[in-house]
Design a protein around this nucleic acid. Structure first.
Lengths: 115, 115
DNA sequence: CCGATATATCGATGATTGTCAATATATTTC
DNA sequence: GAAATATATTGACAATCATCGATATATCGG
């Protein structure tokens, strides 16, 4: 805690003024942080980009491995991270797996960055 | 690489169709990933929220420590991460340090999540 | 100059992460 | 059923991270 009385800001705000009126929900923060953590890797951003720009049928994993520049197990791992973060869903059709973006989850994270 | 010929999607998209037309810039992805990594922690989201909702004079660190529920060195560390990610700037006025949000950087990350 | 205070840095530690090779599972084709 | 293929899982390892206590640096008030 601030024991000494803080000085006045050179502008108009007094020191130690209440920072905003909205209470910060720690549970929400943890959920958002998990989402952002999934985006905190260039390979996963690349994967998400490819899945996003794929058609309505989704993106086949077989098309994601080579452009990612990573091994198949590594790509599978990153897709799992994206899935568990709620950013994509997967669907198996025959031998192939197809991934789709979850627009609502992306929008939620985008909305958290509103100004 | 996909040695076997892939089947047709149940919808209209053929398998292994080219996923999107926009080339993915790896350098951009790395820069974006660094930004999202800074947001991938509940404590930093809380700090950023408090700094964002503070007035034009910025947020005094002395006001951020107690609500964060973390020790002073830990808060200092997280603020450094946010600073090095370009999300906030710091200014020292006397004994106190004041932090400001960098709206352009936040907007850049938000824009990367566009649908 | 001295004591008090605000913030940053250092050092250590336990936890998490990204990566790949090896292996497992499941599906298709012959 | 056997061989081939697509994807997932496991195990290991180096690297990074979140956290705190201790300490350093700097500023203010007397």
């Amino acid at each position: 805690m601030a024991a000494r009385t803080a000085p006045t800001s050179p502008i108009t705000t007094p020191c130690c003024a209440t920072v905003g009126s909205t209470d910060f929900d720690v549970a929400d923060a943890t959920e958002l942080a998990k989402g952002f953590a999934a985006l905190a890797d260039p390979v996963r951003l690349h994967l998400l980009s490819m899945i996003t720009t794929s058609g309505p049928g989704g993106a086949c994993v077989c098309d994601l491995i080579e452009p990612s520049g990573r091994s198949q197990p590594t790509v599978s791992h990153h897709l799992k991270v994206l899935r568990e973060a709620g950013l994509v869903t997967s669907e198996k059709r025959g031998t192939w797996a197809w991934y789709h973006v979850v627009p609502d989850r992306v929008a939620q994270l985008r909305g958290a960055l509103a100004d």
